[in-house]
Computed example of a mutant assay.
Amino acid sequence: MVLLRRVCLLYAGLTLYGVSLALMLHAALGLDPWDVFHQGLADRTGLSFGTVTLLAGLVVLLLWIPLRQRPGLGTVSNVLIVGPTVDATSWLMTAPDGLVPRLLLLAAGIVLNGVASGAYLGAGFGPGPRDGLMTGIHHRTGRSLRGIRTGIELSVLILGALLGGTVGLGTVAYALAIGPLVQFFLPRLTPKDQTGIPTREPQPER
Rank of each mutant, 00 (worst) to 15 (best):
L169P: 01
I152C: 11
G164S: 10
N113W: 04
A108S: 08
D131M: 08
A107G: 05
Y120D: 10
P127E: 09
R140V: 15
N113K: 08
M93G: 02
V79Q: 02
A116S: 07
G124H: 04
G74E: 02
M134P: 05
G151S: 15
A119T: 04
P71L: 07
S90T: 11
V86C: 14
R130V: 05
H138G: 10
L154P: 08
G165R: 03
I81Q: 06
G126R: 03
V76M: 05
R149Q: 14
A123P: 07
G126Y: 02
H138A: 15
L145A: 13
L121D: 03
A161V: 11
T150S: 14
I152N: 10
T85F: 12
L99C: 07
P127I: 10
D131S: 15
I148E: 12
L121W: 03
G147F: 10
G151A: 15
G74Q: 02
P129A: 11
G109N: 00
L162K: 13
D131R: 05
I148T: 13
V79F: 03
L73G: 09
L159Q: 11
G142V: 13
A116N: 01
R149C: 11
G168Q: 04
L105E: 00
G168P: 03
H138L: 07
G124Y: 03
G136C: 12
S90W: 07
G165S: 13
G83N: 04
L112W: 01
I137R: 10
S117W: 06
L105M: 04
G168V: 06
L103Y: 00
T141W: 12
I110Y: 00
I137L: 15
S144C: 14
A119C: 08
A161I: 09
S90P: 04
G147K: 09
R70V: 09
A119H: 01
T141D: 12
L103Q: 00
G165M: 09
A116V: 02
G98A: 02
G128A: 06
L112S: 02
